[in-house]
Simulated assay, not measured.
Amino acid sequence: MKKEKFLFRRIIAGLIDYTLIFCATFAYIQYFGEVNSEGEFYVSGVKALPVFIFWFVYNCVIEVNLQSTFGNYLVKLKPVDEKTELDITIKQSFLRHIVDPIDMFFFGLVAIILITNSQESKRLGDLLAKTKVVKI
């Protein structure tokens, strides 16, 4: 039996989530950052910590407590444990998202290839965390 991949929904959800994260990061760096010799804003040291905290809260804490990120909620998807189909843990959520930079570096191509070619439509983070994405 062929399983639905939700590829378009997952792309839209990812675009929504990472647009929000990038916008919040950009605003934070513009407001709290310093200007280097080339006129570019940057944060370093302790000032960079809120960027990572926001990423963790948005992707992991919210995903675990509300069963999906904002993007997944809008497209009616949620991640679940691959075996039990119960809500994921904070560890699973962290593992799902820690490899997001690999997906983003290749403009989502790695995720698209993995989702379309895996039986459970898993991307790299889902394989690592032992999760899958289902329709709400």
Rank of each mutant, 00 (worst) to 15 (best):
P50K: 05
I136D: 10
S93K: 08
F54E: 15
E34I: 01
F56H: 07
E85K: 13
T89N: 09
L95Y: 07
C60Y: 04
K135W: 00
K91M: 14
I11T: 08
G108I: 01
K3V: 09
V64P: 12
K135A: 13
Y58T: 04
R96E: 04
G14D: 02
E38Q: 13
P79D: 08
L86V: 01
A27Q: 04
D126E: 10
T84C: 12
I88N: 04
V46Q: 13
V110Y: 00
F70M: 13
I62P: 15
V43W: 13
L49T: 10
V61M: 07
Y18R: 05
K135I: 06
I11L: 13
V110N: 01
C60A: 10
L114R: 01
K2G: 03
L128G: 04
S37H: 02
D81W: 04
L20H: 00
I11F: 14
Y42N: 01
V35S: 11
L128P: 07
P50R: 04
K3T: 12
S44L: 00
V43S: 05
Y31T: 05
V35I: 15
Y31L: 06
K130Q: 10
I88R: 09
K135G: 04
I98C: 15
L109H: 00
I98N: 04
T25N: 14
K132N: 03
F107G: 00
L49G: 03
K3C: 01
S44K: 13
F94H: 00
K132P: 03
E82S: 13
Y73W: 14
T116A: 11
P50A: 05
G108W: 04
L15V: 10
Q119S: 15
F94N: 00
P79H: 02
I98T: 10
S118W: 12
L20R: 00
N36W: 05
I16M: 09
L7K: 02
E34G: 04
Y28D: 04
H97N: 15
T84S: 15
